[in-house]
Write a protein that binds this DNA or RNA. Structure first.
Lengths: 335, 335
DNA sequence: TTGTATGCGTTATCAT
DNA sequence: ATGATAACGCATACAA
């Protein structure tokens, strides 16, 4: 890597002159400026980012911790985060928790040592179940801003980006009942342990209750053979005229199963799932989906974090704090 | 952030003593060591990663540049990369090229300024089409190791992690012909512009040629309405008794279309697609898939890069190079 | 056993 | 207009 020092040596000027010239400081004369600029270009000089980060006490990097990237929802969210980060010149460091609290904690610790300026996190399933918050509190203590999205835990108050899962399912079920005159609506889930799952099921139950219909929920979270379980469930509920799936998978499976059983979709049975347009293309007729705007949530989260980072005085506080620290260490007195 | 300096101040020892103690140097006495360790723990001291990186001229971070994370193949590959990186204590910075050469170049430039120790890259479609390699050559020049996976370009020689796409498709088609006695095998593709797409189509054509069968390929790369195009194509080829899809999408669509048209899968028509087990769960009966071991490729790529990084003398060279540089700058003579 | 000095590459303050 | 110096936080060769 070409450094300032080398440029300075070659041109017989001081390092600070080179630095100022490259930063287009008005202090430097035009002639020397061009000389320096030209050489820098020729040698393809690029300021060492790490050194800049150390100096500025700022990394322009965000830590992103999500459960997995295999789930299309998080893949899309990550895409949104990356896009939004790019426009603000932020890099993202990605860690995957695999739905494990332990890995999540380790990732937080790994990155909260100066590696990043802030975090965008989707909590792991285990974190939610255990309602564990110490690692998040620790970040707060260190003045590292965090934005949580999609999943929340009661014990931690902070910046959240969430959609109203209760309302969205409630609305859909209400529509099925009132507009499509459905009376036997089944709910399929493999995410009932998650906060979003719970909320969605509540929305379903509430809508049914208001119309004096009975709820029928199939929980598959720890099920391995999804298709078999769903098949059995559907066979046991032949009167079903609507299915609502609250994840991105069970709806597709149910729809295929029903079609194979000779049902016409959506005439005989309405099938509504969660997901995004890319989920829909896989079924024919296209399954109705509650459009989970994962990408938008990602963007919104990153955007929020960016605002916090720029507005927050944390940065300036850090800077001045450092001055104070230095002074104290030298034994000076602070006014 | 708590620093060495602060710990030193509090305990009335020097910074280097603290540093050595925390790195468990045998130079330091047991008593002082424990004192220091305890305080460090109490104040939750964590070495500033950026400073360490600057000092060591090494970031323990890998730049990952992939076209997108919305395509399950790359999502899985990323997952593999992350896993493998984690075991070697590497962080990964992820950039998405969106299949654009321009974004890919920018990402490379963004990260090749000391931010990362090496790269794992899946080239963008545009990069492949244009056979552009300057940014990669530039990395070589800077001694930044690169591992490319899944997609190759003729003009760049370097570390590649690829699967034999020709062979895999060739084998499958041969099997369809010889074992399942299929005679009218259609190929569906929406990736014919990519190197992998080309190779797969060649494998298909070769196998057909050897049996004197005629190839029939549907290229959909720039098609917007996949389902409609596929439907028309299938309608125009009613004699088809096998479909091979060389991407992760068109096979699923074709299978659903055929089933709806009353065909029995796989009795009437065999359908084989590309993808992974998670693709299969979406269709019923499960579509046969050529298992694209995306995760393994990701792991292999990262693993290879890790080996290059550790074995390569680059590091030591860098170190000694720095000494030499320093010496030269001071005007000293090198022996 | 502990401390001093130096350097990683950059930027900013203060002299000249 | 240019340069010397210090500082960011850490690690290490060298002194004591």
């Amino acid at each position: 890597m070409v450094t300032l020092k080398e440029l300075a040596k070659i041109l017989n000027v001081s390092v600070s002159t080179v630095s100022k010239a490259l930063n287009d400081s008005p202090e430097i004369g035009e002639r020397t400026k061009t000389r320096i600029l030209e050489l820098a270009k020729e040698l393809n000089y690029r300021p060492n980012r790490i050194a800049q980060q150390l100096k500025a006490n700022q990394t322009k990097t965000i830590g992103v911790i999500i459960p997995t990237v295999l789930n299309p929802f998080f893949a899309e969210a990550l895409h949104g985060i990356e896009q939004e980060a790019a426009v603000s010149d932020y890099d993202i460091i990605v860690c995957l928790s695999d739905e494990s609290l332990d890995k999540e904690i380790r990732s937080v610790e790994l990155l909260s040592n100066g590696s990043v300026d802030g975090f965008v996190i989707a909590l792991s399933e285990e974190t939610q179940i255990k309602d564990y918050n110490k690692h998040l509190v620790e970040l707060k203590l260190q003045n590292l801003p965090v934005v949580l999205f999609d999943r929340s835990i009661p014990s931690f108050k902070g910046h959240y980006v969430l959609v109203d899962d209760f309302q969205s399912v409630y609305d859909v079920v209400k529509h099925l009942i009132e507009k499509e005159h459905r009376k036997h609506i089944l709910l399929l889930s493999n995410i009932e342990d998650l906060s979003v799952g719970k909320r969605r099921i509540e929305g379903y139950e509430e809508a049914l209750k208001e119309h004096d219909l009975t709820a029928s929920v199939l929980n598959l979270n720890r099920e391995s053979d999804l298709r078999k379980s769903i098949g059995t469930f559907l066979d046991n509920n032949p009167q079903a005229d609507a299915i609502i799936s609250i994840d991105h998978l069970t709806g597709v499976i149910a729809l295929n199963y029903l079609k194979e059983g000779g049902k016409t979709i959506p005439n005989d049975v309405s099938v509504v799932g969660f997901g995004s347009p890319s989920t829909q293309i896989l079924t024919n007729p296209e399954m109705a989906v509650i459009y989970q705007r994962a990408e938008d949530m990602g963007k919104a989260s990153m955007n929020l974090l960016g605002k916090i980072l720029s507005k927050d005085k944390t940065l300036r506080e850090k800077q001045s704090l450092n001055r104070i620290k230095s002074a104290l260490l030298k034994g000076e007195t602070i006014i």
